[in-house]
């Protein structure tokens, strides 16, 4: 049994299921208490204000995974555009998608609450390391505004709001941040961003006071004041862009935080995590952090995504035999908005094979959308699941916890939470 504990997670089956009650009080950590920290909650979890709207149903897992595919297509299209200077793929993919509800950024995402304007208006924004522009719905909704939980931001009621002119450098930066050229309305800068599933936000690119915490206030923060917003974005007020482009929040606040931020996503929607800006000045908490360099791979180095170099995968303590070229051909990114990790098919096949072999004592069941390795644990109180680690350049091992290994909301269908891309070249 000692050997088993080295190579497997042994756990109660119910611990894999989400709880219906918010339990954030037990999640108080030193980092979370920091002055520059925001609370991170799952959008559909019981700790989220957005969850209080009973009229909006929590999406089924299958819906979430369908939406997650849309997110992946959006990422692919942006990378393809970046490397080839073509938007053909984006248009093709957008046409193939049925969703028009902001699902690309709204599937399994997390939200944080920030203050905008003077006086400060609290807004719940989707936390997104895979995009750059921060935007919120704005009055007047000349085009369309979807329903959101908080009242919609009204710039006419703020003393610190100002437009950005068309001929400014900020306005000219929109092309790289959004993939779309700027537009002009009475010499005011107009932004437009599309997320690939026909959800979009269009409005005035403006400046406003952004209040992250009581001590961290930024005047002149450039953001999208969206007056025509297509989608639902699950009732969130907009999106917080944490990508690498010059218009992202980390870049705009670089003078104070030096583009340094960290976050932790909770193990369950019933718990809270944190998003902290700036280096942790306290002792201890950051010592165990292992760093891997951002990828220098072509197509990733100059993109606004955070590129990583995966070097290997282990299952049950054994490194899988996967050629290094499988990972280097297309590279990898880390994204807070994609739910399920996508691997090159060759790597996924090796992972799946090793995982199934070590899980052969459990009955398999139907696939769940993109997840093809699912088990029926109905007749078990506890199970043992092989430990999975992902290795990144610099010998950084990331051990995946049980709820990161399996995806489920019922014990009768608990699935390996990894999926394959279409081909190794993606």
């Amino acid at each position: 049994s000692q050997d088993l504990q080295h190579t497997h997670h042994v756990l109660h089956v119910n611990s894999l299921l989400p709880s219906a009650v918010c339990n954030s009080s037990t999640q108080v950590s030193a980092l979370h208490k920091k002055k520059s920290s925001l609370q991170v909650v799952h959008k559909h979890g019981p700790c989220s204000q957005l969850h209080q709207d009973k009229a909006k149903k929590t999406p089924r897992n299958a819906d979430t995974l369908f939406q997650d595919q849309a997110r992946v297509r959006y990422i692919r299209s942006r990378l393809a555009k970046n490397s080839a200077g073509s938007s053909d793929m984006k248009e093709t993919d957008a046409a193939n998608l049925l969703a028009k509800d902001g699902s690309v950024v709204g599937s399994g995402d997390y939200v944080v609450t920030v203050g905008l304007g003077s006086p400060k208006k609290q807004l719940s924004l989707i936390f997104d390391t895979g995009s750059d522009i921060t935007w919120t719905q704005c009055q007047p909704c000349d085009g369309y505004c979807y329903d959101q939980m908080e009242t919609i931001f009204d710039p006419s009621k703020s003393s610190t709001y100002s437009n950005i002119s068309c001929d400014s450098a900020l306005c000219n930066s929109l092309l790289s941040a959004t993939g779309n050229s700027l537009d002009c309305s009475l010499s005011a800068c107009v932004y437009g961003i599309q997320y690939g599933d026909s959800s979009s936000s269009v409005g005035l690119f403006s400046k406003e006071r952004l209040t992250l915490t009581s001590t961290d206030v930024f005047d002149g923060f450039a953001f999208g004041c969206g007056q025509n917003n297509q989608g639902t974005f699950s009732g969130a007020a907009g999106l917080l862009g944490l990508g690498r482009d010059n218009l992202s929040l980390p870049s705009q606040t670089a003078r104070k935080y030096n583009k340094f931020f960290s976050y932790c996503l909770p193990s369950s929607p019933s718990l809270t995590g944190f998003l902290t800006f700036g280096k942790d000045s306290g002792k201890g908490s950051s010592k165990s952090v292992k760093f891997t360099p951002l990828s220098r791979a072509a197509g990733l180095q100059d993109s606004s995504f955070y590129g990583l170099d995966i070097t290997g995968i282990s299952v049950g303590g054994r490194r899988l035999s996967i050629s290094a070229s499988v990972f280097t051909t297309a590279g990898a990114i880390i994204d807070s908005g994609t739910v399920i990790t996508r691997l090159p098919p060759t790597a996924y096949a090796a992972l799946r094979s090793a995982f199934r072999q070590r899980m052969s004592q459990y009955p398999m069941t139907d696939s769940l959308s993109i997840l093809d390795t699912c088990y029926d644990f109905s007749n078990y109180k506890s199970v043992s699941i092989p430990k999975i680690s992902i290795f990144f350049r610099g010998n950084v091992e990331v051990k995946i916890i049980p709820v990161g290994t399996m995806y489920s909301d019922t014990v009768s269908q608990v699935c390996l939470a990894f999926a394959a891309n279409d081909d190794d070249g993606e």
């Binding site: 997390y110 950051s286 165990s288 990114i333 916890i401």
Partner: peptide, 30 residues
């Protein structure tokens, strides 16, 4: 491109050091 998604990031402290062009991971972040 492979994507390291948010299910697998749960409870990790993920550190973005943009100026240092590096990413950090620490187990048991929350």
């Amino acid at each position: 491109v492979a994507i390291f998604g948010n299910t697998q990031q749960k409870t990790l402290q993920v550190v973005h050091d943009g100026a240092g062009r590096r990413l950090g991971f620490s187990a048991g972040g929350c």
